[in-house]
Amino acid sequence: MQGASQQTVEPVPPAPAAAGAPSERVLALEFSGSAREYFRVWAVNLCLTLLTLGVFSAWAKVRKKRYFYAHTRLVGTPFQYLAQPLPILKGRIIAAVVFVVYYLSSHYFTSVMPYVLAAGAALAPWVVVRSAAFNARYSAFRNMTFQFGARYLDAAKTIYAWGLVAVLVVGSMFNWWGNPWFGVAAFGVFSLAFPWWIKRLKHFLVSHTGFGGEHGELSATGGQFFAVYFKAGLIIAGAAFATGLLVAASAQVAGTRPYAFLLAMLPAYAGYVLAFAFVQAHLANLVWNHTRLGPLRFQSTLRARGLAKLYVTNALGILGTLGLLIPWAVVRTLRYRAENMRVLLDGELDAFNAGAASAVRAAGAEVGEFFDLDLSL
């Protein structure tokens, strides 16, 4: 699978050389989970969540994460997930209330929708900070927990860079979207600025994440993020061009071949999957390959074609078995990512020292997960 692609991987910045420093060595990283074992965890979680009308979902999340953490090992030592179900359940209740308010305002009380959006914009930095802090605080390695030290204002400055999001929210409040020129201009500016916005967000998350007294550093540039999205745009443009040609050709034979139009759309579907896999693989490579945590740095070698093949076979397996192969798809995806990740150590792991860590409420993490916010590295 890995050899199926010949695409270029983002270069790993060289580690700074120091006189007398020990040579950099690779630490063994492995994922030992199996589809058969995880199927039992998944099946119990699904059944109990349905029987309890969703209440067990908090316990299901803890069981799932503990299984994956325990089967992910670095130099033979497993990671640990320390969160408890009850705080997660409370957070999910808050998330559900927020979602109900959003749904009612968007479908029945549309006059208050702009104000709900404004409140959501004010809430977003808190969600980002609390979500990242909760996930870090209850993730541990060698009995030491990770930390996330950002504050609300730090997140607000990152999320609302250049005031673009604020302009969009205010525009919705005063119905600026009624002017097509405003919509075109806002969409164009936001599209061009999006890669730099993602770079700021990733830098914010990495630089405020710590472990054992060390904090992360991200050296990737906005231009490198822009290159990833630009190349993905070229893939979509090429697929759209091929689709247009096939649709035009199929229009002439649609009368005798009713499925000609659907077949003509295949390049569009393939282009979307490949572009999505390209962004996922190259963004992960870009972030990990330019991240340092104390004496550690990382090398990710994900391939777009390999990831696309993984997505397609996973989807076909899940559809063909009506969802029964979901555990198989999850396990093979995690194994593929672990096999394409190297952890490089320049020094000793003893350089990380345990420090005090405070408990973090789970509400922010669950609101972020409820609205499908991607806050991972």
Rank of each mutant, 00 (worst) to 15 (best):
F225H: 06
H203Q: 14
A232E: 04
A254L: 10
F226M: 11
G216E: 03
Q252V: 15
R257E: 15
L262K: 00
F187S: 04
Y259D: 11
L262G: 02
A232G: 06
K231F: 12
P258R: 09
Y229G: 08
Q224T: 06
A186Y: 07
G223M: 09
V253K: 06
R257K: 13
G188D: 09
L263V: 05
W196C: 11
G183C: 02
V189T: 07
F194S: 13
P195H: 06
M265T: 00
L192W: 13
Q224P: 12
V228N: 10
T256M: 10
G188V: 12
L218G: 03
L262T: 00
A251I: 06
I198Q: 15
T221K: 04
G238K: 00
A240V: 07
F204H: 10
L245N: 11
E214Y: 13
T221W: 04
H203T: 13
F211R: 04
L205C: 08
L262W: 10
A249W: 15
V228H: 14
A185V: 01
T243E: 01
L205K: 06
G255Y: 14
L263T: 03
F204Y: 08
F226K: 09
A227C: 04
G255I: 02
R257A: 15
A186S: 05
H208Q: 08
A248P: 00
H215W: 09
L263G: 15
K199Q: 15
W196G: 11
A185S: 03
G216A: 12
G223C: 09
G255L: 09
